[in-house]
């Protein structure tokens, strides 16, 4: 599975949706209006390091078992140190690829699809890690 570049985290005002503590009664002024407790910001949830966050688009089916299918948008955080088990973006032979990073028993990049073999990491030639995937944006409705 390869990846495509999409865009950066928005610097515009966050998209805010009010969270009500009680169900809202329709049609007349709601008593719940006095109880707006906080506003949920999807950027705040998904983007911990805005300056270090990039978006990429997944292509192909090599990561379906990890919940990434072709066309999904991946949130990539470069500020994080990649750990065992992280889904990462790495450059392999000049292409970006998304795989799971396995450090033991033997270091490899693990696809999420039995049709693809794991890619062994040679100690003297480690892949260039671009960043750690922190969220997957997967649309569920065809537009």
């Amino acid at each position: 599975m390869s990846v495509q570049w999409l865009g950066r985290a928005s610097r515009r005002a966050p998209l805010c949706l009010p969270l009500f503590s009680q169900p809202v009664a329709a049609g007349f002024p709601s008593p719940a209006q006095d109880h707006v407790e906080q506003r949920l910001d999807l950027n705040g949830l998904c983007i911990k390091h805005p300056q270090a966050t990039y978006f990429v688009r997944a292509k192909g089916d090599s990561m379906v078992e990890h919940g990434i299918v072709s066309g999904d948008i991946l949130v990539v955080d470069r500020a994080l140190e990649a750990r065992h088990g992280d889904i990462i973006i790495a450059s392999l032979q000049g292409d970006f690829t998304v795989k799971r990073l396995c450090l033991h028993p033997s270091p490899c990049l693990q696809p999420g699809n039995p049709a693809y073999p794991p890619i062994a990491i040679e100690e003297d030639n480690p892949p260039d890690i671009f960043g750690v995937v922190t969220f997957v944006v997967h649309p569920t409705r065809l537009s």
Partner: peptide
């Protein structure tokens, strides 16, 4: 080159 970080529309073709 594509505006990789500022335009959702500019998706380069990657094989």
């Amino acid at each position: 080159s594509p505006s990789y970080t500022t335009d959702w529309q500019q998706i380069p073709e990657v094989s």
